[in-house]
Design a protein around this nucleic acid. Structure first.
Lengths: 141, 141
DNA sequence: GAGAATACTTAGTCAGACTAAGTTAGTCTG
DNA sequence: CAGACTAACTTAGTCTGACTAAGTATTCTC
């Protein structure tokens, strides 16, 4: 009679705390915060608008304004203007910003690689097989 | 030549952002924050010490002091004293605190259940098969 | 061209993280 | 057993990062 989806959800709900704690541990002792890293990641492909960034990160515009202020203060991004619309503010990463992004990303991947290496083959295979389902579960609206 | 663990890690690293955004969406519009929910969860089994709580949540003691201050102000927990050691402060949930915990937990589970229901059988089976690996991957030191 | 909508910024508040320093209580040592 | 050290919290001060409300340009629409 128990809903298998609910059982899965309960298990995941219990695991969520571990994930959050793990993420905190990964991002601790890094020169930039996980938020800053996420924003820099959005700028990797080139200049973006403030509204785009806010939407993509699920925050309000004033929050992104403050975030970009900090990143600009630290020399990781620069603000620009859109030629076709004078209201629009664009944001681009600096060379230093891209370097920080690469370094932080690499550090995170190395950390995760070590975690994966601690699993046995069967567990690794199970996780690999679950990847498409994960993409589907966590992405989208 | 590519390390399969690293490939897994890269995929997960890319997915982390989706998870974070999803978590933010789940906890938005809830009466209590995800941090408060997590702390209340630690108190479900009875009174705990401040140091225990801080350690369990990976934060420093002053952070937990402030957190418990807010929870106490909102009537969700009460501070107590340890009979055998007058330095120790204990924290217990109130009835209101336990109610909030149950309600928030239920809401989170319902949300996740809906996400799981949107998957097909194959994806669901893959996720279910990956659960033990997940426990191993995210738990522990 | 006036009024509405859009794109940001500013100002003010709050949660939640940190360090450094203070207080009180227990422990240990000569 | 007194003095020093350690342990358990709290307080004070700072920072990031989230929000709303309100202000300023600029563009769009009728």
């Amino acid at each position: 009679m128990t809903d298998p989806n609910r059982e899965l959800a309960e298990h995941f709900s219990r695991n969520l705390r571990d994930v959050v704690l793990l993420l905190r541990r990964v991002s601790a002792d890094q020169p930039i915060t996980s938020q800053q890293l996420a924003v820099l990641g959005s700028l990797e492909g080139g200049a973006r608008r403030m509204t785009e960034l806010a939407e993509e990160h699920g925050v309000r515009l004033p929050t992104m304004t403050a975030q970009i202020n900090r990143l600009e203060r630290d020399g990781l991004v620069v603000r620009g203007r859109d030629a076709s619309d004078a209201r629009v503010v664009t944001v681009e990463p600096t060379t230093a910003g891209l370097e920080q992004l690469c370094a932080a990303r690499e550090q995170r991947i190395v950390f995760l690689t070590e975690r994966f290496a601690a699993l046995d083959d069967e567990q690794r295979a199970a996780l690999a097989a679950a990847l498409p389902a994960f993409d589907r579960l966590f992405a989208g609206p």
